[in-house]
Amino acid sequence: MEQGRMEQYNRETSQIHAPEELIRKTKEAVREEEQRIARAELPQKTAGKRSCRSGVYRWALPAAAAVLVILIGTSGLFFGRGKDRTLSESAADTAANETAAENDMELQLGAPPEAAAADAGTPIERDGSHDTAEEAAAKEKMPAAAAEADSLREADVVQEDAADSVQTAGGRATENSQAKNDFAEEKNMEETDGLLRCLKKFAEMAYRLLAETVR
């Protein structure tokens, strides 16, 4: 019974054929679709890109982008950390140098060198002596000039001493900071080497992965 019905179904169905008109329209639609796809693929081919149908192009682009982002992020982190530390260290060193120099100067001089120079007489005060008579001025000129020369020499000596002391204090501070810098640089180099090794390994791995995918 059931078999008979199914045979009847088969007979009925086999009488159905796709209408010619529908086939013609479908072929036209297919041709249009083919042209549309060809037009869409043309710019990609001229640009020398890989076809999307291979499945590589779709996969490789996001992977490459991800690798790039990771590399940029890692290097940015590394350089940012190094820069911050250098700036803070140099700022601390400068502040230490200045403090040490000021302390030494105060200890050695007791007073600033400008005051000593003022006590010995200034060129302005010396010019004020021109208002007296010429003879008196001539008499007074020689000892005044000698005294002026002496005072200038003394001031020079005081300034040189002060400069020496500043240099010594600065030198001590520089030595300290030099040692600190050396230590920091060594540490920095070790970290850099480690990071570079990691980056190299990562890049090799990514390259191998991409090469396998392309193959």
Binding site: I16, L22, T26
Partner: peptide, 25 residues
């Protein structure tokens, strides 16, 4: 084959025609 299957699935020939075209496109 596609037309018969489409007709067996759809309730009217218009939908069957649309399905036929969609499949080949």
């Amino acid at each position: 084959m596609v037309y018969r299957l489409a007709l067996s699935q759809m309730k009217n020939t218009t939908d069957a025609d649309d399905l036929f075209q969609e499949v080949f496109v």
